[in-house]
Nucleic acid binder design. Structure first.
Lengths: 245, 245
DNA sequence: CGACGTGTTGATCTCTCTCAATTAGAGTGG
DNA sequence: CCACTCTAATTGAGAGAGATCAACACGTCG
């Protein structure tokens, strides 16, 4: 595959990306070192690795995770095209989490001090990045609420909805024909703090109930409304009700 | 209590704060609108509130949380002096979480666009803020690992260690005489995804085993080593072992 | 003094985990 | 083309960590 200039990045036109002017694009381009292609299941960053640069996921899926010494693993967030990777660790510091791909994937690699250069040369982009980082955190917050306080059924409903929405936003059809779903049930389990077996049973239950379907690596929401209800999607109702999905 | 100028902020000399030059201090000062004092248990930000400004916690303890519609609550992070509050929500957006104080507390209130002004006028401080935000996220990551994969005993050990370290860092004696511990067992439970009753039983078990003591609102670690071992503090060992506490 | 918040403990109950076994591809080598 | 191996999904059965239900102790406060 040919390397893509930032100017021609296929992600740029998507509605979720903040408009950037030519200068900003040139800046990003100048900080980009190269691209990196990995196969499904490859490790981008090892847990505890000390020299990880800054990446951007251009294509494919991946996830961030932490493990305990006996092997128990918790997936922290799933990464989709457009996500930043590596803002967390201060340069020179050990990565607090690992990153592994779920599919074949392409990453843009930036020089280590890119984060600082970006801030220095373009406060506007720096601002965007802190906002993106904060947004990342709010995704972890959501997961923490799920894992801490939702039942297995509710957690799974929540995960399906959120992943569907994120994946759908990257597609032209908005998910009308389902979205890719490259996770194994083990990934779902590790993302929700559940065991593999219970994840399987719960997933089957929801599927039999007609709430969703996973087939050939694609996810279809068959009753998004019911899923959202199950997940208590909009929390305690102190928030205004918004249309679902 | 008199308002304190940023230049004289008692937090500034602490080792954990990044040195700021006079100009940066003046900038922060110029963005600071006022101070706000709350009593223990007061709400700083309601879940779903739309107009929350940016705050800094100058004194006291607080916590961020989310709730489900049936009242189940998950505490996301505990906030200590020096922490930022409100970077998460984009201006004009609804707060994704609430903030409530655990003790009497003093907040510095900044104008809504302070985040942007800070970036614009001082890229260096902007950079620090994205780093701080990323650091906040890594704390949530840690909690997510606990809640998702650690047993009740392990979670509690982890929480005690982490809160102790954070609180000790704010004290001159580094925690030699214990640290303030203003949480009720309900807060511990809500922070770890446990029930109140089970939290109580586990806390008592660890206390009886001589690992810690909580008395008169103060926390003492009596066997930090054992707690760290229980918590599997440094994860999977791929990270270098560092001295504990 | 009664109401209330917090901590404590015992007795169930149940959701989720662990253990075990089976099925269904996909890939590999002979 | 078939045996063999591996991974992922499935399902049943039994075990257990943690939840829920109930009661009680203690201190504070109006």
């Amino acid at each position: 595959m040919k390397e893509v200039a930032c100017r021609d990045c296929p992600l740029r036109p998507l509605p979720l990306f903040l408009v950037q002017n030519g200068e900003e694009l040139d800046l990003v381009q100048s900080l980009k070192k190269r691209e990196l292609m990995l196969s499904a299941g490859d490790t981008l960053i090892h847990e505890g690795q000390t020299d990880a640069p800054l990446y951007t996921l251009r294509q494919g899926w991946a996830f961030r995770f932490k493990t305990l010494s006996d092997g128990r693993r918790q997936i922290l967030t799933f990464l989709l095209a457009g996500d930043f990777i590596g803002v967390q660790q201060k340069m020179g510091d050990a990565a607090a989490h690992g990153v592994v791909t779920l599919t074949d994937a392409v990453f843009c690699v930036f020089q280590r001090d890119a984060l600082w250069e970006l801030h220095r040369q373009s406060p506007a982009m720096g601002f965007n990045i802190t906002w993106l980082t904060a947004h990342e955190e709010s995704m972890v917050d959501d997961t923490l609420l799920s894992v801490g306080r939702r039942s297995a059924e509710e957690r799974i409903a929540m995960l399906l909805i959120l992943l569907f929405k994120r994946a759908a936003a990257l597609q032209a059809d908005g998910g009308a024909a389902g979205v890719p779903f490259p996770l194994t049930q083990q990934h779902v389990a590790d993302g929700l703090g559940l065991s593999l077996v219970h994840t399987n049973k719960t997933l089957r239950k929801l599927e039999r109930r007609g709430l969703h379907r996973i087939e050939d690596g694609r996810l279809y929401l068959r009753d998004a409304r019911a899923l959202a209800r199950l997940a208590d999607l909009y929390g305690d109702g102190r928030q205004a009700q918004r249309p679902l999905v």
